[in-house]
């Protein structure tokens, strides 16, 4: 299991990487942590002619909280920030704890030492943890090309199995993860056959409660479609509810309704569909508890 030959290029910055992509065309792939791409190459399931390594690009190795003009302060993750660094960061725990929880479930620690958050999002595996959490919390993808940068809303980014709206000459320079207001809570649940195996299904959820009533909700499923799936039907049921058991059950049912998940050796499509409902219920229960606790804590202040 040795990779096919390729030519390695190291980019010192985002613009240099974009220039290389522009020059090398469709035979080039971005290498960040390489924790998804290099196994595929060792298995000879991918054979790019060029790898453009951005893992040392100085302007992509960052993790901070932006001071948003509108008062919101999104978490901003550069393409060279490793999953482990993002997972352990106080910034992440403050703005996007769901992302930290997703990363903790994604691959083993030594893999997270190299793997990047942005790389996982750009790889767009429909069963992966990080894209599901990112889509659930919401945010944007900043795509870099030779011509400059564009911003893609998270809900528009994924368009198929291992596929995104990114152009061939673009790379993801960073992602912004939106901050949710105080009184929010998250839940992240996944089921896998063993502790370290790829998930069968994932549910990522956030809700915000004001005066005992849900006024914002987000439910995303992983592993049950060709992309991480945003479930607005479930959200609609939650809105205005007390996030109690009944509402959660109805939302979980709605989240799983109409799914036609793929089958593999970890579970059939029918099993995945059942698990989507179970995991949504559990993730929402976690989210409701945390949101309720947050709201109560806020009320006391």
């Amino acid at each position: 299991m040795k990779s096919p030959p390729f030519e390695y290029k190291r980019a010192e910055g985002a613009e240099e990487a974009a220039a290389l992509l522009n020059e090398l065309g469709s035979d080039a792939r971005i290498l960040a942590g390489g924790q998804s791409l290099l196994p595929l190459m060792n298995l000879r399931l991918a054979s790019p002619a060029f790898l453009v390594d951005i893992s040392r690009a100085g302007d992509l190795k960052f993790l901070h909280i932006d001071n948003g003009s509108s008062g919101a302060s999104p978490l901003h993750v550069g393409a060279a920030a490793t999953q482990r660094d993002v997972e352990m960061s106080a910034h992440t725990l403050r703005v996007a704890p769901i992302l930290a929880e997703a990363i903790a479930n994604a691959g083993q620690v030594p893999v997270r030492h190299r793997g990047t958050v942005v790389g996982s999002i750009a790889h767009a595996d429909p069963s992966a943890e990080v894209p599901a959490a990112f889509l659930a919390q919401g945010g944007s993808v900043i795509a870099q090309s030779l011509g400059g940068r564009r911003v893609i809303p998270s809900e528009d980014f994924f368009d198929g199995v291992f596929s995104t709206v990114l152009e061939e000459v673009e790379l993801v320079a960073s992602v912004r993860v939106d901050e949710w207001p105080e009184g929010s809570g998250h839940g992240f649940r996944e089921l896998s056959v063993t502790a370290e195996s790829w998930p069968v299904a994932i549910a990522a959820a956030l809700i915000h409660i004001t005066d005992g009533e849900v006024d914002r909700a987000s439910v995303v499923l992983g592993g049950v479609g060709s992309t991480p799936l945003w479930r607005p039907e479930a959200e609609a049921i939650l809105m205005g509810s007390d996030a109690g058991a009944e509402a959660i059950e109805a939302a979980a049912e709605a989240a799983a309704a109409g799914l036609e998940p793929p089958s593999d050796t970890f579970g059939s499509g029918a099993y995945r569909k059942k698990m989507a409902r179970v995991l949504t219920r559990r993730a929402l229960a976690d989210a409701a508890e945390r949101a309720g606790a947050a709201e109560r804590a806020g009320g006391k202040q």
Binding site: R10, L31, G34, P110
Partner: peptide
């Protein structure tokens, strides 16, 4: 261990 952190050396390039 690469810079003190555990890493899978089969999926890291020598050049990296």
């Amino acid at each position: 261990l690469v810079d003190g952190r555990s890493v899978r050396s089969c999926i890291m390039l020598a050049v990296q």
